[in-house]
Design a binder for these strands. Structure first.
Lengths: 211, 211
DNA sequence: AACCTTCTGTGATAAATGTTACTGTAGATT
DNA sequence: AATCTACAGTAACATTTATCACAGAAGGTT
């Protein structure tokens, strides 16, 4: 049994929850599914109730660049922004861990903004926090070198899962940072020598990441 | 005599314009003024009626990184997002050309969102277009090399001023792209050899930028 | 004109990152 | 056990960008 909407979105009013359950459609997607492509028109706003979605930017040459993850209790800011005018998506969204979502038709957006204070606040807060997150991403690529970005990436991962092991191959990390596996391997090895991590197959244990 | 609010913000309703004139305070700032610093609390939303403001991110070492410019008829998205909860600014805002602005106390934000449809739409559209712009910035630093970023930068400049001359020194460009002057000089020289630009002192003429 | 300041050009060199190529290893498959 | 495949390590080299050092040019000031 999954947690209820009320648990996942504690700030939503009771009436709003009821409205969502009435108008939204609950759907499941398997890991690997691409929910949204660059250039596609957006028809729904998405609330995540289970699993994990990766939001990333795709380069012309097919390269990826991770923006952020969406997790239960969160919503896709892009879809909220774009739906207002049924704009094209500027990003890719791919399911990383099997998800359950609430799809909310875009017509509801404007209506609820006016009718439900808690929806309005949620939308604004979603905009704000994502904008902030993207600014942090800009910081990282604009001002920091690869080794710092890698550290930041690992930290973010362990924060999000709450544990100190990151279960990813070097290749996967390289893809999300838009660099090559060799570079990631090299840098991780240096970090291991500095005692920051312990490297296993498909796993990186973070050791001294608490400051 | 400056253009009226009605001209600059054609989508605003007549009542909204009246409300803005009643509650906002018109202010002027000289070029060079820093209107907002990273970490400062935001108390106002800003509508630009004249001039140009640069929104950029500041690195720990003092490096800059241009996000976008604000021009007449536009508003600061960050201030709109943050005001909702009187959050801290994540960016720097510096006046590039003497500006006139309408300062709107943050308390108005939520109120107007509910009362004025045209304000609501303006805010959403502001969010959307800035988010998009920032995503494009991410693209540039994540996927492109310096020469492409420089071309993009010049193009954006000439688009914004409507002319084909960019009146900036190499040093200024370097600062905004967070690189060094020498790199900019070298790349510009190559572009000149390719016939893309003509270089003068404090000025770059764009030649073949129309495709 | 003589001087000064800012801007521009360019070579030499260093550092970071990307690329190629190859080796070894762990775990899965047969 | 033999084999296969994905993952990881690493050396050598190429490319890009950053840094240092210096020279010359443009324009303003005296």
């Amino acid at each position: 049994m999954q947690p209820s909407l009320k648990t996942l979105f504690p700030n939503f009013s009771t009436e709003l929850i009821a409205t969502i359950e009435e108008n939204g459609s609950a759907q499941d997607f398997k890991a690997g599914t691409v929910l949204m492509r660059t250039g596609q028109y957006i028809k729904n706003t998405v609330l995540i109730t289970k699993g994990k979605i990766k939001i990333y930017r795709e380069g012309e040459d097919g390269g990826e660049f991770l923006m952020y993850y969406l997790q239960p209790g969160q919503a896709c800011a892009i879809s909220m922004i774009c739906t207002a005018k049924s704009e094209k998506s500027q990003i890719m969204a791919k399911v990383v861990e099997d998800v359950s979502v609430m799809m909310i038709p875009l017509q509801m957006m404007d209506k609820w903004m006016m009718e439900h204070r808690s929806w309005y606040e949620f939308v604004i807060e979603t905009y704000r926090s994502r904008f902030e997150e993207v600014l942090e991403v800009v910081d990282n690529i604009a001002f920091r070198s690869m080794d710092e970005r890698l550290e930041f990436y690992l930290k973010r991962h362990s924060d999000s899962c709450g544990c100190s092991e990151v279960n990813l191959s070097h290749q996967e990390i390289a893809t999300e940072l838009n660099t090559s596996r060799e570079v990631v391997s090299r840098l991780l090895k240096k970090m291991e020598q500095r005692g920051l991590v312990k490297l296993n197959r498909n796993q990186i244990e973070l050791l001294k990441f608490n400051h």
